[in-house]
Simulated scan of single mutants.
Amino acid sequence: MSKFYSKILLFGEYSIIKGSQGLAFPLKKFYGELKFPHVNTSKPEHNLSDFCQYISGRGILANLLDTDLFRSELEQGLYFDSNIPIGHGVGSSGALCASIFARYSKEFKRKKTYTQSELKYLQDLMALMESYYHGTSSGLDCLISLIDKPVFIRSRNDVESIEDLPKHKMGHFYLYETHIIRKTAPLVHTFLKDYDQSQQVREGVQRFSQLTNELILSLLQAKKTIFDELFSQISRFQYLNFETMICDNIKAFWLQGLESKEFFVKLCGAGGGGYYLVYSPNKALSYPNLTKIDL
């Protein structure tokens, strides 16, 4: 069966909720795939029966997916084998939903290009599926895993797949492992509460959104000097304004980057644990807890 990769929201965390653009990539370092257990081996504990029941009770999903086959294969021991870290902001449930949709869909086939209307349709279906795990979902994590392409998010309802990005002209990207599992919902709740209650926060988010949009544009246009400067500005802005989302065990490293300008750190998704994104404009890094990633 096919592999479905994790994802990384490169830019747009939090600001995308309030209308900024976003840029997300499949992260090929981690993946999951549906499997049947081998003889004389015990399968991991992945209970998909309740998920199958959930899909069966959602009219549009039940019509589009072959739930009878899904149920039959579960009885044969089907499970989701994954090395995607849970609670790290790289889309573990998104890859699971994408793998199930692709296997049991009566009409979907992966292809090289998608129209915007096709992407919006798939995103809505993915959102409905992943809501089983998160209560609510944008569907973006699942969509990226499903189509296995970078996605440019102009707005929450306007996404476009990207074929060629000049990322090879940029510097080096890394994930910083905090070894802390976190949950997204409480962090987003705090952000929205602060946004609603403070004019200063709203003005800061507006500035952050502007920086995010400019940063994405500089990457799309391969303007490295501008990209490097904007990345450093976002790193500084988050260090000063997103304290709740920054783990204690990365603060000194984050500040070291800002002061030395050797590298810059930013949130990777909601923050609060899991992975953080590190960017080095020029030289390769060799610090503890860092893993180089290829976008």
Rank of each mutant, 00 (worst) to 15 (best):
residue 56 S to W: 09
residue 263 F to V: 08
residue 35 K to T: 05
residue 81 D to H: 11
residue 28 K to V: 03
residue 2 S to N: 13
residue 291 T to M: 09
residue 7 K to R: 03
residue 247 C to E: 13
residue 198 S to R: 01
residue 256 Q to P: 01
residue 173 F to T: 04
residue 17 I to A: 09
residue 259 E to N: 14
residue 208 F to G: 10
residue 88 H to K: 13
residue 43 K to I: 02
residue 214 E to F: 03
residue 56 S to A: 12
residue 80 F to H: 15
residue 194 D to V: 02
residue 120 K to M: 10
residue 171 G to N: 06
residue 104 Y to I: 02
residue 146 L to G: 01
residue 14 Y to S: 02
residue 278 V to I: 15
residue 161 S to L: 03
residue 6 S to A: 11
residue 6 S to N: 03
residue 277 L to D: 09
residue 187 L to H: 09
residue 242 F to W: 00
residue 123 Q to E: 08
residue 196 D to V: 02
residue 56 S to Q: 15
residue 88 H to G: 11
residue 291 T to C: 02
residue 207 R to I: 01
residue 59 G to P: 08
residue 1 M to E: 07
residue 142 C to T: 11
residue 18 K to R: 11
residue 193 K to C: 07
residue 99 S to V: 10
residue 13 E to Q: 04
residue 65 L to M: 15
residue 110 R to Q: 12
residue 36 F to Q: 01
residue 182 R to N: 11
residue 226 I to W: 05
residue 247 C to G: 06
residue 169 K to E: 10
residue 273 G to D: 06
residue 208 F to N: 11
residue 263 F to M: 10
residue 138 S to V: 05
residue 157 N to W: 02
residue 265 V to W: 05
residue 9 L to A: 00
residue 19 G to D: 14
residue 174 Y to V: 06
residue 35 K to I: 00
residue 274 G to D: 07
residue 178 T to S: 10
residue 55 I to F: 11
residue 32 G to K: 03
residue 99 S to I: 05
residue 127 A to N: 07
residue 249 N to F: 06
residue 206 Q to C: 08
residue 161 S to T: 06
residue 266 K to Y: 05
residue 173 F to N: 04
residue 185 A to C: 03
residue 19 G to W: 05
residue 151 V to A: 10
residue 233 Q to H: 05
residue 285 L to A: 11
residue 116 Q to V: 04
residue 49 S to C: 09
residue 111 K to C: 09
residue 251 K to D: 01
residue 73 E to H: 09
residue 38 H to K: 15
residue 99 S to A: 15
residue 69 L to P: 09
residue 215 L to R: 07
residue 218 S to N: 03
residue 48 L to R: 10
residue 184 T to I: 02
residue 40 N to C: 04
residue 157 N to P: 03
residue 244 T to W: 08
residue 185 A to D: 11
residue 287 Y to K: 14
residue 30 F to N: 06
residue 48 L to G: 06
residue 188 V to I: 15
residue 172 H to S: 07
residue 20 S to Y: 04
residue 288 P to V: 13
residue 217 L to A: 11
residue 243 E to P: 04
residue 248 D to F: 09
residue 114 Y to T: 07
residue 192 L to V: 08
residue 16 I to W: 03
residue 155 S to G: 14
residue 83 N to F: 04
residue 52 C to L: 08
residue 9 L to H: 00
residue 7 K to L: 00
residue 280 S to N: 14
residue 262 E to G: 14
residue 19 G to A: 02
residue 67 T to N: 13
residue 91 G to Q: 13
residue 205 V to C: 02
residue 76 Q to Y: 10
residue 1 M to F: 07
residue 260 S to A: 06
residue 294 D to S: 12
residue 260 S to H: 08
residue 89 G to R: 00
residue 103 R to A: 08
residue 211 L to C: 04
residue 133 Y to G: 01
residue 58 R to Y: 12
residue 49 S to N: 14
residue 1 M to K: 14
residue 192 L to C: 12
residue 185 A to H: 14
residue 221 Q to K: 09
residue 147 I to D: 03
residue 142 C to R: 00
residue 100 I to R: 07
residue 100 I to T: 11
residue 194 D to T: 06
residue 214 E to V: 04
residue 280 S to Q: 10
residue 71 R to E: 14
residue 264 F to Y: 10
residue 109 K to V: 12
residue 100 I to S: 02
residue 56 S to G: 15
residue 172 H to V: 05
residue 165 L to V: 03
residue 15 S to A: 09
residue 39 V to I: 13
residue 128 L to P: 04
residue 260 S to N: 10
residue 54 Y to C: 07
residue 68 D to N: 14
residue 38 H to V: 05
